[in-house]
């Protein structure tokens, strides 16, 4: 009896969720900066954002690997966005953040960025259009580029997808 009631409730909540995916589909993105460029990760991919943590370096690992951290008892690999996007290195400062994301393999990894800015809403249609134009940049992790509309500036936001990250070669 109680079980069937639960099922009905569950059904309702499923319907609610269905409503959200109505005609105007928007997705939310977390923007962050690396070397004065603005990037964005899908909110759904970001697990959390950390302030500076103590990073234990791994001797002999790929240069993009900053090391590992203790995230509530779990060991999480931390990459450096600057090395990743082939930019000059910069030491950790007050604005530096670690964005923790779950990869497609189920592994959780973090990436060090210069700063985390805000969460923006993008029309899924715009994102899809961007996806079609991107991809020939040589970087497999850049989805595409969208204009930074809200602030009226002419800067672009680079949409990033880290889910496909996999084994990094040895240094």
């Amino acid at each position: 009896m109680s079980q069937s009631a639960y099922l009905i409730n569950n059904q309702n909540s499923l319907d609610d969720m269905g409503l959200e995916q109505g005609p105007a589909v928007i997705s939310r993105w977390v923007t962050f900066t690396v070397a004065d460029e603005t990037y964005a990760l899908n909110v759904l991919d970001v697990q959390e954002v950390l302030r500076a943590a103590e990073i234990t370096p791994i001797p002999g690992a790929h240069p993009a690997v900053r090391g590992i951290i203790n995230l509530r008892g779990n060991v999480v690999t931390i990459l450096d966005a600057r090395v990743f996007f082939a930019l000059p290195e910069k030491p950790f400062d007050d604005d530096s953040r670690i964005m923790v994301a779950e990869l497609r393999s189920g592994e959780v990894a973090g990436i060090v960025v210069d700063s985390v800015a805000e969460v923006i809403a993008l029309d899924e249609a715009v994102v899809n259009a961007a996806k079609r134009t991107g991809g020939d940049e040589g970087s497999a992790h850049i989805l595409g580029v969208v204009p930074q509309t809200e602030k009226g500036s002419d800067k672009l936001i680079i949409l990033v997808d880290l889910k496909g990250l996999s084994e990094l070669g040895e240094k």
Binding site: T56, I58, P59, G60, A61, H62, V65, I68, V75, V76, T77, L79, S105, E107, V108, A109, L165, S166, E167, L168, G169, E170
Partner: peptide, 15 residues
């Protein structure tokens, strides 16, 4: 265990 990203780094049994 170290994550898959570090699988090919030899010399460590884990952390």
């Amino acid at each position: 265990p170290l994550g898959e990203l570090l699988h090919n780094v030899g010399g460590f049994a884990g952390a």
